[in-house]
Design a protein around this nucleic acid. Structure first.
Lengths: 226, 226, 226, 226
DNA sequence: CATGAATGAGCGTTCATTCAT
DNA sequence: AATGAATGAACGCTCATTCAT
């Protein structure tokens, strides 16, 4: 029976799985986790319930998959963006934040699921969220540590500073997601960059900030889900 | 027919209602909205289902009551705390943040319900949350506007600055709530104050910050629910 | 403690009882038996639930009281009306039917309860209805028997004839009750009288029929509930 | 995707649906609408609650289905029977009434549901009943109109005459349904035919009436549900 | 691989009735 | 007599999941 799982079959399976995930992301982000029934998903994906349970252990597992992929997406985006910040703090920061927001904007359903629907869902996702934050904080901490070393600023608790920094991004995104705002998230990058640069007592030049934003706006996001 | 319901009976009713609310806050914050059944609440409160529905229209209405009371609680705390910031920005800011965190710490169940459980629950609470944030941002904006007028700092978008500021508080609280941390929220006040003072380009003195925090720690929270 | 139930007290009790019954008739006829809750009745009657259960054993007993009174009302009306038919069949019949319809019209809520709400309610009321019909049929049968004796008509089964006669009245009333017709029931008396007179092969004169109807229209219904 | 559901599966579904309907008719007619619980039905039909709700939206919808099918049944029966009345009024009338009664007799549970249980249930069924009566009256009216044209009888209000005619049938059936009589409904056809023929002043011959009844008795009801 | 009919534990909620005051 | 807070059995219904085909 081994030959049954030929390469083509496997590819078809993967495709269908991706298809279900894509549809589910839309449905979950529209209706929320609890108001979304398995029936809703299978109808939207034009498959049968049986098929659904062939590809996913259960409803929560599907959501978990979605969540994990979302985390992955956003993380790699953030990591990648933070790497842009080298010598030029002002240019780098604005690029990083702009890039991050652009990713969010291109993945609104996924973002909504991760930042809103998954909150308070159950211990599994609380843990996942805690881990994600932890990872994010660690990374940011490391990064801030570098700044501290060469900086003249006052940074009494790097972990809190990292939490605060992420909090500024998080809250702006949350507001944007919940108000279904038509404005672009990118409109708030400039002010947000200034806020955090000042908080970190980093010297900056307005033109550098704007240059960073413009660069991101003109870049195509190739590494993102279609 | 007014005399039909005596004053004592009314008082007993109020007490029982408060009792149910208190128990429910605990249960909801432990299990979350969806995993909490009406049966859970009535068993914990040692009443019958009928009694529950005598005092509350339904499960959602109970949660709404809890939520509204929580909002009320936290808002009045925040408003009150922000009023402490007068001429001395450093002293005032630390007092404000410390006060806010103390209120959160004393109302952990309520805070968890509002900041975690109610997120992504349904449109009603999304709207409520949006309104709350809006109110908070407005208030902070107004306050920042005053700072801007007399300040020398760069504040390109007051609304974003307000969102960022609230975001720093929010994220620290969220982290604290989700990790069930044994450490006090107040331990993070100092660093957080510095972060935001720097972000706003406000001059500060370490001693003043510490003085503000100490003052709050030694103050009793009289105006809060037992 | 015997003196407590003095004559005046008893009268007050009777009055309150009547009051509840009157209100209940309205509510039941508006909402139907099952959609009417005890709470509905006590609120409309401005009494407490406790008081309700002091006067009536339970909800069904209240309905039964209503039903029995309705039956009583309508029966005595019908009996009385049928006694009008002596020598002059045409004049008598029209008077009888008109009188019956007038009673129904003046007691629409009660009629609705008896003829619609109580149908298919439960065995108790099915039995009551059967008994009522039985009584009605017996009376009519007796009456038809007299007609048969002196008549020349063909009356193969008096019981069926009685059922048929009552059915003609019943169906017209039912239609009137269910369509919430604004027209008077009395408008249909003439045709209905003709139908039944012809069915019984009784000679008639149009003027006599009309005279009978007019007489009833101009009579005041003293023996009916206010 | 049509091939997804095979013909055999669809047939099995239809069969199960019919099975539930049949059982439900029995239960509803025994206990009435309100005393019949969904649990009663599913236990009697030997299915699970889930299965019940797979086939029917809810309890009321099942009842509605039953009702609509009953109406359909009885209507087509009545219409068909009335068409038998052509030139020979006496023969035709007896045939029509006999046929109608035979249909009722073969569908006692359905008849009970429609004529007793559904009365006073709720606005939906009041409307349905009103519509049914309206349709019946219209049909009868049309028919009586033809009689009037060629007749010598006195028919002052055709609509009332139609209501009266239907009332005679209705009341006899009601009596039969409520007393759980062991006698056949057909025993009352003769007298009832005479009553209505006389009411319409139609000439008749006893033999013709009896011939009509006999003909129906000896006919098999093929077009009825088993 | 795919289907969808079948399952049933468990939910939120109602409301007639009781009884201490 | 009158009150209305308290009770809890019982209801209709949902939906994630299974499994025979």
């Amino acid at each position: 029976m081994v030959y049954k799982t030929s390469k083509e079959t496997q590819e078809k399976k993967d495709l269908k799985r991706k298809h279900i995930i894509k549809i589910a992301a839309r449905i979950f982000s529209q209706n929320g986790y609890h108001k979304t029934t398995v029936k809703d998903v299978v109808e939207a994906a034009d498959i049968s319930v049986g098929t659904f349970y062939f590809y996913f252990k259960n409803k929560e597992h599907l959501f978990e998959t979605l969540y994990d992929e979302g985390i992955e997406e956003i993380f790699s985006a953030l990591m990648q963006s933070l790497q842009n910040i080298e010598c030029e703090a002002d240019f780098g920061f604005s690029k990083a934040i702009a890039f991050f927001f652009k990713v969010i904007e291109c993945n609104k359903p996924l973002a909504k699921i991760m930042l809103i629907e998954a909150v308070g869902l159950n211990p599994t996702f609380e843990r996942k969220r805690a881990e994600a934050t932890q990872k994010l904080v660690s990374y940011t901490t490391e990064f801030f540590y570098e700044i501290k070393k060469l900086g003249t600023g006052n940074m009494p608790d790097i972990k809190i500073f990292a939490l605060a920094f992420i909090g500024t991004l998080y809250n702006v995104v949350l507001e944007w997601l919940q108000t279904d705002s038509k404005e672009s998230l990118l409109d708030s990058v400039y002010a947000l960059t200034v806020y955090n640069l000042q908080a970190l007592k980093l010297e900056y030049n307005i033109d550098n900030i704007n240059r960073g934003i413009t660069e991101i706006i003109n870049t195509k996001l190739d590494n993102l889900k279609e």
